[in-house]
């Protein structure tokens, strides 16, 4: 995955966040959104027990106790609070997190995601992905549009294991933004100089560009 693709995705996904929201950023590309918040004030929740996560610490601020869900060192901001894991997931499952941004392995045409298990590999980690998917008020999937082997991550039906029945609202990739509804999937924005026809050919489908 090229770095530029990751940053295109993160920058576009950050536009979906709004002042005052409680936001949980998954591991990987989602953590890059913090670089594109500009002047927006959002409150970052990390499921290991903090609301009000701040930027990475300087060397003299390092504290082994204080980490995010990706086990990276972090800081906390004025107004932050700490809580235990049961309370953290009550916040998540109970609908008190406005937006979750999750990295994905696959997204189906109706918005079902797979992001925790790769076929033919031991499946020994799920973390908070399934709780975030069913609990957050809005779920945005992010990721490069194609896997390392070149196959599209947007697929008619999942071939990887599902993270849950709840559908995501958006899939933001380096090529385009896909929106899911009861009517199916549509492209709402193209993010680079590819044409709609070229994009459809790469994906092997026929999608419309619908500007909202």
């Amino acid at each position: 995955m090229s770095n530029s693709a990751k940053y295109i995705i993160a920058k576009r996904a950050a536009q979906e966040l709004h002042d005052g929201q409680i936001v949980n950023l998954g591991i990987g590309i989602p953590t890059l959104l913090t670089e594109y918040l500009d002047n927006k004030v959002v409150y970052l929740q990390t499921e290991n027990g903090l609301l009000g996560m701040g930027p990475a610490p300087s060397d003299d601020q390092l504290d082994a106790d204080l980490m995010n869900a990706g086990k990276e060192p972090i800081t906390f901001l004025p107004g932050a609070s700490f809580f235990n894991s049961a309370d953290s997931f009550a916040m998540i499952r109970g609908g008190h997190v406005d937006v979750a941004v999750l990295g994905v392995l696959q997204v189906s045409h109706d918005g079902e995601i797979a992001n925790w298990a790769v076929p033919n590999q031991p499946i020994l980690g799920v973390g908070g992905a399934m709780d975030l998917l069913i609990g957050a008020n809005k779920v945005i999937a992010v990721g490069t549009l194609f896997a390392k082997d070149g196959t599209p991550k947007l697929v008619p039906t999942l071939t990887y294991k599902s993270t849950g029945a709840r559908k995501v609202e958006l899939f933001i990739t380096e090529y385009a933004v896909f929106k899911f509804s009861n009517q199916g999937v549509e492209i709402v924005e193209i993010l680079n100089d590819i044409t709609l026809d070229e994009l459809n050919e790469l994906l092997g489908i026929r999608l419309e560009l619908v500007k909202h």
Binding site: A86, F89, A90, L124, V126, G127, G128, M130, D131
Partner: peptide, 15 residues
């Protein structure tokens, strides 16, 4: 042997 649980389910089960 491994029993895998979602993190929130693990936390709530212990609670």
């Amino acid at each position: 042997e491994i029993d895998l649980l979602p993190q929130g389910t693990l936390a709530e089960a212990i609670r």
